[in-house]
């Protein structure tokens, strides 16, 4: 009899403790989104199907999206997400695009008609220009999201892979 009472009490105490712990240590949804967002490449290219990296991070945190939808993040990005979320590393889903080297947008300026459509499309405000005036891309701020390509009516935007951005071995110019 004593045993039954003791066990019941013990079970109740443990249950209360567990319940309390669960609410106390509840995963902070915001911090999880921030941590996922920190892994994403911030290209803001929307290839994942969400209107930016942050919305995609929120979707991952809410288990609405998989971790395999970010082509700019590539295999490394998927691995980092898998590591953070304790999931298996999976290959990138080809439906959302393929991993390729970052290429920056470059406007062939003589051909630009100044329509401002690309300026509106750029998610990071990296294109400067005004109506009926030439536009140009600020290379330092371009993320290579390619969102400026479809709206351009004259197809004057190229994607160029930058060469050797870190001049590491200085004094060895040959």
């Amino acid at each position: 009899m004593t045993g039954i009472i003791l066990l019941t009490l013990l079970a109740a105490a443990t249950g209360a403790l567990l319940g309390y712990a669960a609410s106390w240590f509840e995963a902070d949804a915001d911090s999880l989104v921030n941590r996922i967002d920190a892994i994403l490449p911030q290209t803001q290219c929307a290839q994942c199907g969400y209107p930016g990296c942050r919305p995609y991070a929120e979707a991952i945190a809410n288990s609405q999206a998989g971790i395999d939808q970010c082509p700019p993040g590539g295999a490394d990005g998927v691995a980092a997400l898998a590591n953070l979320l304790g999931r298996d590393v999976i290959p990138l889903n080809p439906h959302y695009g393929e991993e390729k080297p970052v290429a920056l947008a470059f406007i062939r300026e003589p051909e630009c008609i100044g329509c401002t459509l690309c300026i509106k499309a750029c998610p990071v405000d990296a294109i400067v220009g005004a109506a009926k005036l030439m536009h140009t891309v600020i290379a330092d701020h371009c993320t290579g999201c390619e969102l400026c390509l479809p709206p351009c009516p004259v197809d004057c935007i190229d994607l160029i892979v930058p060469q050797n951005t870190i001049s590491h071995y200085h004094g060895q110019i040959s």
Partner: peptide, 22 residues
């Protein structure tokens, strides 16, 4: 490491600019 560090900085700037634009 330097490349990773640089791309991290770039990503932070892109994020700021995206947030400000939003």
């Amino acid at each position: 490491l330097a490349v990773k560090h640089r791309s991290k900085l770039d990503a932070d700037i892109a994020k700021q600019r995206f947030d400000k634009r939003a």
